[in-house]
Computed example of a mutant assay.
Amino acid sequence: MRPPTDPYLAVTHPDPYPFYAGLRARGGLHRIEGFDPWIAADGATVRAVLTSEHCRVRPLAEPIPPHLGGTAAGALFGRLVRMNDGGPFPTVKRALASSLEEMMSALEAESRRWSARLFAEPSIALLPTRALQLPVFVLGTLLGLPEDGLDACVQDVEAYVRSVVHSQAVSEGAASAARLTGRVEDCAQARPALLSRFSARMQEGGAPAELRTPNAVGLLTQAYEATAGLLGASLLAIARMPSLRTQLARRECTMEDVVREAARHESPVQNTRRFVHSRVSVAGQELEAGATVVVVLAAANRDPQENPRPDDFLPRRVDRRTFTFGLGTHACPGQRLAETMAVAAAEQVLASGLDLSPLSGPVTWRASTNTRILRGP
């Protein structure tokens, strides 16, 4: 098996972790041949980059990807808290995080209800599709979207997500972004609990009302792949380590323990990027304006300085340090959402009696340069 040659290719490699170990061993910000961005891979450097005020989420000259300019997909992208620094966006993020926290009981109930429906049939072949449907069905329901339209919403989320990366998909992605925005805006008239709470928290903080709907849509688009990846990582761990079933049966660990360790051990989000707007020193390295840093979260998760015995899967790991969901001002507010949905789904998959042994061998991964999502055995 040939090792990957850069962090983007590593995401879908059968075993990227020896390559990540090599990146991590270099320490600090560094470059590798044939790959232009700077790389942060060890825990200390990843932490320094993610918490630096000088490392932004978009290039200075490109607040949105150029191919999305003038489209509904670009309008959606440009209003997401995930893709903006400063201004009203920290207030919107706090409002969103507070609203989600208040909705956790309802989210857990919907996660179990939809998991029972989506994963009732024990089918390995259907598993990847159902994993991607789950976050849209759960969060869409909480946003007030009609159940008979949720399949169409999944298709629109997929089209939008693809359009952000692939310029040839922009037409379909723009139409999908417009439909998603319209559906969520229509739901607001019925005042569903999540949207109402989000609106109220934004108003309390003085955030512009026009940022509500795009960031409600953003819940669907941002939970989509990350949640599916987390569920896949959890089921892979159970398939490849039969002792986990025994530990679960004996209540020596919980499914929450398994999911949280899976998020560290087989990170569903393998990397993210940061951009430097002006010459600055970060983690002891001088960076020029316009520099890009690829932050290899999956490598930092297995840094022995952060997590002793990093390659071992320890569901009851003490003082676990997980970089998967980010740090600093752009730490993901949806970590508990993803974990809750993955727990409900994994428990239902096991209850269905699905034979997971096909996952104990070679598997394939959904095409991506940053998310590691199970496609099938």
Rank of each mutant, 00 (worst) to 15 (best):
M1F: 14
P14T: 04
P18Q: 05
R26T: 12
G34F: 01
F35Y: 09
P37G: 11
A40W: 00
A40D: 01
A48M: 08
L50E: 01
E62V: 11
L68H: 07
R79F: 02
D85F: 04
G86Y: 01
F89H: 09
T91K: 12
R94M: 07
L96I: 15
R113F: 12
W114E: 08
E121P: 05
L126V: 11
A131N: 01
A131L: 10
V136Q: 10
L139A: 05
E147H: 09
D148R: 06
V154W: 04
R162G: 03
V165L: 04
A169L: 00
R183K: 05
A193H: 04
S199R: 13
G206A: 06
P208N: 06
P208I: 06
T213K: 15
L219I: 08
Q222M: 15
L231Q: 05
L231K: 07
A239N: 06
C253D: 12
C253P: 01
E266N: 12
G284Y: 06
L287H: 09
V293M: 04
V294F: 12
A300L: 04
D312K: 06
V318M: 09
R321S: 02
R321T: 01
T324V: 14
T324N: 08
L327G: 02
L327K: 08
A331G: 10
C332H: 01
G334A: 11
A342P: 06
A351K: 09
L359C: 14
S360A: 15
G361Y: 04
P362Y: 01
V363W: 12
V363K: 11
I373F: 05
I373E: 11
R375S: 14
